[in-house]
Design a protein around this nucleic acid. Structure first.
Lengths: 101, 101
DNA sequence: CAGTCGCATTGATATCTGTCAATATGTTTG
DNA sequence: CAAACATATTGACAGATATCAATGCGACTG
């Protein structure tokens, strides 16, 4: 582990971006629902009701998670399915375990 | 590990608060400097120069870290010293290790 | 005890973010 | 292909946040 002062700008920005993506209650809930889904993925159609936000709001939050590279979107027919990015699963579990009491 | 949907409101809020405290480039740098300081603590007097921000700005960010419970402030004579909260060190290392590439 | 020094607080401002209504886009189905 | 449906995008707005100059407040020091 290097000091962040020595990290290239882009790595520091990406680290903050990942943290910022998690630092919202709705996104954290979305991410945990996806992470713990029995099949490993969740249909976007279920999410607005699940988190109590309007459809565009959920879409926005999902876009943030995808843009941060934490979540992957797959269109399957009419529906969009979201799963945790494979190479992020370990990191996410570590972060969540460290941050949730 | 419980699902966050089942967590009491306050725990969810605290989790997000810890993440939000880290989700800023200046605060992340401050925290890493404190965490990696040879003596385990750093004098506030060195920080504005170290991160390239004005003194009130740094004071503000330090206050955020303290309020989130990640960092402890100790007044020693004229100077204020900051160290990582003892019970947060492990969690912080886990988070930082998972988020910094 | 008056002056200086270190840091916090206040106030002002610009930018960012979460939210939803309205609308657009793309997919399925009749 | 037209209608219906699922999701994304746009636009608007309120609230949060990062920043610094100015100021306040303790604590040392001469």
């Amino acid at each position: 582990m290097r000091f962040i002062e020595q990290l290239p700008e882009t790595s520091a920005r990406e680290a903050v971006a990942r943290l910022a993506a998690l630092a919202d209650p709705i996104r954290l809930r979305l991410l945990l629902m996806i992470r713990h889904a029995p099949t490993g993925e969740i249909c976007a159609c279920d999410l607005p009701d699940a988190v109590g936000r309007a459809q565009p709001t959920v879409s926005h939050h999902l876009a943030v998670l995808v843009r941060a590279g934490l979540v992957v979107r797959e269109q399957r027919g009419k529906w969009a399915w979201f799963s945790v990015a494979e190479d992020e699963a370990k990191s996410l579990d570590a972060i969540i375990g460290a941050v949730v009491r």
